[in-house]
Simulated assay, not measured.
Amino acid sequence: MKDFMFVFRNDPSTLADRSPEDMQASMQKWMDWIGGIAAQGKLIDRGNRLNAAGKVVKPSQAIVDGPYIETKESVGGYTMVRAESLDEAAEMAKGCPILLFGGNVEVREIDRM
């Protein structure tokens, strides 16, 4: 088995006008999806959402405010799973609720040294 990280990207403006009921329904979809992965024994870390505030360290060692969204897409969170292959991990990602809201999931294998 190999370890993979799902990196969730979306347009943060898609969340702005959602009602509390919509947010609750969305959260339930996330919990169901994560629960299904956990039930298979393939969940390593459910991960978390990432706060939009942060700092960026540049090669010059300058530390600046950011990251700033220069496109309509930002990294919103992550989850770590275990799968036999990249293809299997990608199949798991197909059930991610972020896809219902125009977001996407980047699937990356974690190299252990």
Rank of each mutant, 00 (worst) to 15 (best):
Y68E: 05
Q24V: 12
R49W: 15
A93R: 11
G102W: 02
D3G: 00
V81N: 05
V105T: 09
L99G: 04
L99H: 07
S85F: 01
T71G: 06
P59T: 06
R9D: 03
E21I: 09
I37C: 02
D3I: 12
L100M: 10
M92L: 13
M31R: 14
L50G: 04
T71N: 06
L100R: 03
V56I: 11
K29V: 04
G103V: 01
K55H: 08
V75R: 06
M27T: 12
P20Q: 10
D45K: 00
S85Y: 08
R108L: 09
A53S: 13
C96I: 08
Q61N: 11
Q28D: 10
G47F: 03
G54F: 03
V56E: 04
Q24R: 15
V105G: 03
G36P: 04
Y78D: 03
D45V: 02
A83D: 07
R108P: 06
M31I: 15
E106G: 11
P59I: 13
T14N: 12
G77D: 09
I110R: 01
P20R: 15
A38G: 02
K72N: 09
G95R: 10
L86V: 03
L50P: 06
V107T: 00
M31F: 14
Q61W: 04
L99Q: 03
N48H: 09
L43H: 00
M92C: 04
D45Q: 01
I63Y: 05
A93V: 15
L43Y: 01
E84Y: 00
I98L: 02
P67N: 08
D32Q: 09
